[in-house]
Amino acid sequence: MTALTPSLAIIAARLETAPASSELLADELVQGDTPDWRGIAVPPHLLERFARRSDAAPLANRPIGGGQIHLLARRPGFGALLLDAWQPALGQWRGWLVTPDAAYADACGLVLEERDAPADPRASLVLCDLAVTVGVAELGACLGVLSQDRLQAARWLELHGRDNAAAPAPGVIARVAAPGGYALTGTPLGAAGQDARQAYRQLLEQGLQQLRIAPAPATSVTPIAPIAPIKAANASRWLKMITAVAATVMVAQSVWIFLPAEFTQVGNAEYRGGGSGVETGKRIRVLFRADATEAEIRIWLQRQQLEIVSGPDTMGAFTLLTRDQQKVLPPPGPGNPLAVINP
């Protein structure tokens, strides 16, 4: 059997309990004395992994959204999930298991590469045929964010990866034609006992069972469709209307600023003569989802007691005003139209 890195023994150590069968690790027994590593320099590939982890660190607290890779909160050492789409009927996210073990890629595995940076090295291989559903509470820190093209490639590999007719070659990574141009993936699985990737998958499936993470229903797989161009956040009709309202507010504020002082004495501490005329309160900058409707945003703003005071800016972001200085917006997700808070 071809030996791959890391060993199956190391992978088994990520599970909550020992593997169900010791036969999985029979070929991985280490013989001889443990080497003395104190005088050995850190290999360049490890230094590169440290750098990748540092580059991806700012993503850790990113609000949950499609295309993101999040650690499994209850067992971060076991793996992560690439989130595909929210499933309203289940109240869960659908996604694919992600591991750091690129060498174990098979024909349905998407290997992350330079164009996916920044991405934590704990996210190196997306197992596109291990689709699962999880609740928001199961998701931990964000390790990376994939583009829509790369999500399409993962969906394509889930549906068509098994059509690969190449000969099994454990450890070999090759390019295949896929949506977005190409994808890096492995070769089809070989026979059990001759291909360490078979034992690897058994360990992963056992880990998912221990974590009580359910496979995604087959009916949730949707046909691959052409990717619609992503519209700018200020391109929708309702956003143009909101822009006009925001502009009117700003004009009114400007008129107030330049009125003579006697006209600005209204007996309110917030509007003193010579003041800015802008209402006091806490301001929060946000991006709304491009597919959010005007009605959805209006109702949400009323419920949260917020109002738009400026925007969109060059990034398509809006500034919201709240009278509550302690106000904290709920994270983006089901139930609100937010895409990013404080972009």
Rank of each mutant, 00 (worst) to 15 (best):
T2P: 15
A3W: 14
A3I: 09
L4V: 04
T5N: 13
T5R: 14
T5K: 06
I10W: 10
A12V: 08
R14C: 08
L15E: 14
T17E: 10
T17K: 12
A18V: 15
S22H: 13
E23H: 12
E23G: 10
D27V: 00
E28G: 01
V30H: 00
Q31L: 05
T34D: 00
W37G: 05
W37L: 07
R38W: 06
A41G: 09
V42A: 11
P44V: 03
P44F: 04
L46Y: 12
L46Q: 10
L47R: 00
R49F: 15
F50Q: 10
F50W: 14
A51C: 06
R52H: 09
R52E: 11
R52S: 13
S54N: 15
A56L: 01
A56H: 06
L59N: 14
A60R: 04
N61A: 10
N61Q: 13
N61S: 03
N61G: 12
R62F: 01
R62W: 03
P63I: 00
I64E: 10
I64Y: 09
G65P: 01
G66C: 11
G67L: 11
G67F: 05
I69G: 09
I69S: 04
L71G: 13
L71Q: 15
L71N: 06
L72S: 02
A73I: 07
A73P: 07
R74P: 08
R74I: 05
P76F: 02
G77V: 00
F78G: 11
G79N: 13
G79L: 01
G79K: 13
A80L: 05
L82G: 06
L83N: 05
W86C: 03
Q87P: 08
Q87G: 04
P88I: 01
A89Y: 07
L90D: 07
L90Q: 11
G91D: 12
G91P: 12
Q92E: 11
W93N: 02
G95I: 06
W96A: 09
W96C: 06
L97C: 04
L97R: 11
L97K: 12
P100N: 02
P100R: 01
P100K: 03
D101T: 01
A102I: 02
A102H: 13
A103D: 15
A103M: 04
A105Q: 10
G109K: 15
L112I: 07
L112K: 05
L112A: 02
E113I: 12
E113Q: 15
E113R: 14
E113F: 05
E114S: 15
E114T: 07
R115C: 11
R115P: 09
R115N: 06
D116T: 08
D116M: 07
A119D: 01
A119G: 02
A119E: 01
P121L: 05
R122M: 07
S124D: 10
C128Y: 12
